[in-house]
Design a protein around this nucleic acid. Structure first.
Lengths: 232, 232
DNA sequence: GGACGCCGCCGCCCGCGGTCGGAGGCGGCG
DNA sequence: CGCCGCCTCCGACCGCGGGCGGCGGCGTCC
């Protein structure tokens, strides 16, 4: 059973830790999981602190984590596990009744690999465990939908805003992009092999067309339209 | 068979349109889907234009869409369907061999409800069809993982960058936020009931502490740190 | 061909913005 | 108590940035 320790290789069982404050839930999961040949429950925890501690001790492949737990909630526990050296290989699968936005996004931010609602069927849970065990991720369909919505919304804003840039000439867009990165007129001139005076003209035109009074406001617009991205 | 038209109610079959340029793939899917009692293939298309046209004509619940297709690719076809009045209820499930980032993100942006890779098993396909039919969403695990990565990365950057703001005093953060929205010193003064001279002092201090030479660079930093958000 | 408009280029003027130094009040700390 | 940090305000200097007008090149339309 536990002969093959360490790396979760080919046909070694997936080692799972179950963290939930309700004993009934834990035993239910344990029975369900242990019925499978390729899955073995190697530990249990009744709160967040225990979950972290047991994870450190048993180094499971997957942690089945409830969110609502005493002492330390599942999200914070997930963050601690993800932030611990040596536990990078441990995948956390969140399992909860509530699917509040904050919970989901915070959990993913904390480093969770999956997020299931407790109304999911047993086969879905088993499938999810196997998926996250190999390093992939899986979300409840309802949550996937919202994550996609979030993602699409961001880009939607960018697309719509980009149309404002249509009035600019190529040169104007170019200098505006550089202005958006905080460069001075002189620096832009060096960058584009232009006289600073010329750069000024382009900047001025861009400001008029975009309704910016300031070069600072031009930077704002550059960011809002996605002409420059907040990332590095 | 086609007695129950219109709304996809309780036990009416899920009406599916299959769009793929390879006849073998189409017939394979058709056989697989038609074997299920609750799923019925109501049409086929061999390119993007046909897919849009057939969708308009048959109003399926779900469109199984390949990306690589002649005339019009699956992503553009998806965008057209999502943008057509009266077809809002039609869910698009992308099915492709390639999982390039651009494909995935563009497809979700275009309005797709799901994204499967062709190495998925038949049961996964059937499950996906049923999931998107009820309005939820489903992605291949590998893709879910990358989407989460994207999402988490954004917030990660924001979190890390916010620490740069720790050196600022409360007032300095305040004025910096307003500078980040493109306000002039005078306007900031009115906003915070301060003399413009005072505002200058705070702005100067903030610039020194954050290493900004310009007020424009201060705007850049304000955005990068998430002190102001690109959205509204 | 001339007229017009857009683009890219430049020089001049001046006001906003950024820097420096200073001053007064207020709260916390040794 | 004296010291320090923060907030507030002021005046002076000066350089960048923004407004304005002008000039040449290129394409379009008449």
């Amino acid at each position: 059973m536990n002969a093959a320790a360490g790396s979760p290789s080919a046909n070694a069982p997936i080692r799972v830790l179950v963290a939930d404050d309700e004993a009934l839930v834990r035993s239910g999961f344990k029975v369900l999981l242990d019925l499978e040949d390729d899955i073995a429950v190697v530990g249990e925890a009744t709160n967040g602190h225990e979950a972290v501690e047991r994870t450190r001790a048993t180094r499971p492949d997957v942690v089945l984590m409830d969110i609502r737990m005493p002492k330390l909630d599942g999200i914070q526990a997930t963050a601690q596990i993800a932030g611990t050296r040596g536990l990078e290989q441990v995948r956390v699968l969140i399992l909860t009744t509530y699917d509040t936005d904050d919970y989901v996004f915070d959990a993913l931010q904390a480093g969770a690999s999956g997020f299931l609602l407790k109304d999911a069927g047993p086969s879905e849970l088993l499938h999810a465990v196997r998926v996250v065990a190999v390093g992939d991720a899986l979300l409840a369909p309802r949550i996937t939908r919202r994550l996609i919505g979030q993602f699409a919304a961001r880009r939607q804003v960018a697309r719509a805003a980009e149309e404002r840039l249509a009035v600019l000439t190529e040169r104007e867009r170019e200098v505006t992009a550089l202005v958006g990165q905080g460069l001075s007129n002189h620096e832009i001139g060096n960058e584009l092999f232009l006289s600073p005076a010329t750069v000024r003209t382009h900047v001025s035109h861009a400001m008029v067309k975009l309704g910016a009074r300031d070069r600072a406001q031009l930077v704002v617009i550059a960011y809002r339209t996605g002409l420059v991205s907040p990332a590095p």
